[in-house]
Design a protein around this nucleic acid. Structure first.
Length: 664
DNA sequence: CTACTTTAACCCGCAATTAA
DNA sequence: TTAATTGCGGGTTAAAGTAG
């Protein structure tokens, strides 16, 4: 039809000439035909598939036949033959363009044909997606009373073909009121009918505007529920009644987006909202105030990071939402209409389908994710990524995620606190990253075997070591989900970063039911985690200092450390001998490389780090040195400090010693 | 208290991703 | 295509923590 009318516009004279000639020829032909009724069908059927001008030629011929028949007062005879002819005509109609409809109805008296046959034909058209043709056929044949007006008109209304709908119901007041009711329902569904607690998929389309300075305006807003997908044609809204309709619409959108109990699923929603706010300046503030938004783009990122989904770096043809849909639902989206002209009206059927499925698939994706969040490395509560405040400052966001990971681990703590069998500190081994060095020190202080990762190590290394050495992972929260999934429940603990190291240590020990006794304190080197010491007498230390040439002038050094070990306590009262008894033996002469500070294993004793004042303490008879890093320790006030700090979890500490240590 | 270390926030630019 | 966002790495800095 398009082709024909274009020709008309371009060369009207020519066409008039052609059609005059055609009329002449056609009429001569009709007269010679023995059965013009069958003849036309013969011709039309054999033209099947012709495109362009072929169709308009068919139309002219059919039209001419109708006129000619009228002039000659010829009507088909009512017999079984007519039924066959009508059936053939309907067949032609189902295949060809709709401009043939009127002449064929006239020629074959289709309005008098068998109603059921006609209805069957309408249904056939409808189910093949030829909604427009079906409705036109109904209108011409007056079949409306036999059909459901909502079903017939909905597709056309969605396609913005209101004129056809108007014709359809023109002669039927009761259908009109029925249709109005339907429209009313739609409206109320949109404005009020969205139930609290409901989940909807939201998407928007606009005309791609490359290079143009102005922001795009949104053409279509899709809202998908489980039952229906609504396409709001925003362009139409702004066309009619600018003021009022737009106000109403904005109010509706605003209330939808600010309602926290309606979960709005989107994919890259911030971009959509940005465009929306340029379309309706009244909604500019909405992005900040929007509530109940769940952006599946954020979730998608989390899911994709999951190594469990065998991250083969195969190049996917699909990307974005389509990839997500493919992964979760098995089939990708057809994105062909994405860049089409969303401002052209009417929208093509493909566009409508695309827009609808784009919004609807969000619901299905959400459903799959909700069914088994753990499988995708997500918290049971998908709404962790909710809040929609992704655009806020990273600081706030971090706090949010901290809370997000913290609360579940707290819950776990409560639930499983008693589930861990008691374990002694020296048998408890963990691995953590450098972020938790403070915690590591404390734990080593208390005798826990702590492996600290290098700064450069990936978190995967933590999982690897944890598995290999049977360690428990301590993490600062962020990679908690990931690691937990890799090593299993109860083998990974999320430490609250905002706590101080001591508090962290306490919660770890509590969580894993670790028993710490006085003998555990300092049983492990805080620096290198080694738990083997050598005991060195004070005299030996003095001797070693001498041979190492340190200090060069004892008096000077002495000044520098006037009160290095000031607490009088450690001087007045010796620690109970049993209290500190690390795994060690006395340093023998054979342990040292002659005349040096180097152990057989190459470790250099860090004699120089000993403040001189310490040597003067009368109650101090010996030192300990770590066999691995060479660090030298002694029983100083630090011991008491640690003991007092962990008093509440220490076992076997006497009440009187408590008052003693507390002085620090 | 002091010297020193550790931590995390911040900033910046680059690259990748994503949208219509 | 464009524009916007996001993630990442690296470097700096201020603040906090720690040992003695």
């Amino acid at each position: 039809m398009g082709e024909g009318s274009r020709r008309n516009l371009q060369m009207p004279d020519n066409v008039v000439f052609v059609s005059l000639q055609l009329r002449e020829v056609a009429r001569q032909g009709f007269a010679t035909l023995e059965d013009p009724f069958a003849g036309l069908l013969d011709m039309l059927e054999s033209c099947k598939g012709w495109k362009g001008k072929g169709h308009s030629l068919e139309y002219y011929i059919a039209d001419e036949l109708a006129c000619w028949l009228k002039e000659h007062s010829r009507e088909p005879e009512f017999d079984s033959n007519l039924k066959k002819l009508q059936a053939r005509a309907l067949g032609v109609l189902a295949e060809s363009q709709s401009d043939l409809l009127e002449p064929l109805i006239s020629v074959y008296q289709l309005q008098k044909a068998d109603r059921n046959t006609l209805l069957g034909n309408v249904n056939h058209l409808y189910h093949n997606g030829k909604y427009k043709e079906a409705v036109i056929l109904c209108t011409k044949l007056k079949l409306q009373p036999e059909l459901d007006v909502e079903k017939m008109c909905t597709p056309l209304l969605l396609q913005d073909k209101a004129n056809l709908v108007k014709d359809y119901v023109a002669d039927y007041p009761h259908l009109q009121s029925q249709l109005l009711q339907v429209l009313d329902t739609w409206y109320s569904v949109l404005s009020l009918g969205l139930q609290p607690g409901q989940v909807v998929g939201i998407d928007m389309e606009w005309r791609p505007s490359f290079g143009l300075v102005g922001r795009p305006r949104v053409s279509v807003l899709q809202i998908a529920t489980k039952e229906h997908v609504y396409l709001l044609d925003l362009l139409q809204f702004s066309k009619l009644d600018k003021e009022e309709k737009e106000k109403e619409l904005c109010h509706f959108i605003w209330s939808l987006f600010s309602e926290p109990s309606i979960t709005k699923l989107g994919y890259g929603m911030s971009g959509d909202l940005c465009s929306l706010s340029t379309t309706y300046p009244a909604l500019r503030e909405m992005e900040k105030q929007a509530q109940g938004i769940l952006d599946l783009l954020q979730v998608d990122k989390q899911v994709r990071k999951e190594p469990s989904s065998k991250t083969k770096r195969t190049r996917h043809a699909e990307k974005g939402l389509s990839l997500l849909v493919q992964n979760l639902l098995g089939k990708p989206l057809d994105k062909r209409e994405q860049l089409s002209n969303w401002e052209k009206r009417p929208l093509r059927e493909e566009q409508i389908l695309y827009a609808a499925s784009d919004a609807y698939c969000l619901l299905e994706v959400y459903e799959v994710l909700c069914k088994d969040p753990a499988n995708f490395g997500l918290t049971a509560n998908l709404k962790e990524c909710l809040a929609g405040k992704q655009s806020t400052k990273p600081r706030a966001e971090k706090q949010l995620s901290k809370q997000g990971t913290q609360s579940p681990s707290k819950q776990v703590e409560m639930l499983y606190a008693s589930a861990f069998p008691e374990i002694s500190a020296k048998d408890f081994s963990v691995v953590c990253d450098t972020m938790l060095q403070g915690l590591a020190r404390y734990l080593r202080c208390l005798g826990v075997d702590v492996h600290v990762l290098e700064n450069t190590d990936d978190h995967r290394k933590a999982a690897e070591i944890a598995r290999k050495e049977g360690r428990i992972i301590l993490t600062s929260g962020l990679p908690y989900q990931k690691l937990q999934a890799q090593v299993g429940e109860g083998r990974c603990f999320s430490v609250n970063c905002s706590d101080k190291a001591k508090q962290q240590a306490l919660s770890v020990l509590k969580h894993f039911n670790v028993r710490v006794t006085l003998t555990d304190i300092f049983s492990r080197c805080q620096v290198c985690n080694c738990d083997k010491y050598l005991k060195i007498s004070k005299e030996k230390i003095r001797h070693l200092m001498k041979i190492s040439g340190c200090p060069k002038s004892p008096e000077e050094e002495w000044e520098l450390y006037p009160k290095a070990e000031s607490p009088a306590l450690s001087e007045t009262k010796q620690f109970p001998g049993c209290a500190y008894n690390p795994n060690c033996r006395w340093l023998g002469d054979s342990d040292l490389n002659a005349g040096s500070l180097t152990l057989k294993n190459g470790t250099t004793l860090q004699i120089r780090t000993i403040p001189l004042g310490v040597l003067e303490k009368t109650n101090l008879s010996h030192f300990y040195c770590c066999t691995q890093c060479g660090k030298v320790f002694w029983e100083g006030s630090h011991f008491g400090r640690v003991v007092s700090q962990f008093q509440e979890i220490l076992e076997g500490s006497e009440p009187q010693s408590q008052s003693f240590y507390e002085l620090n």
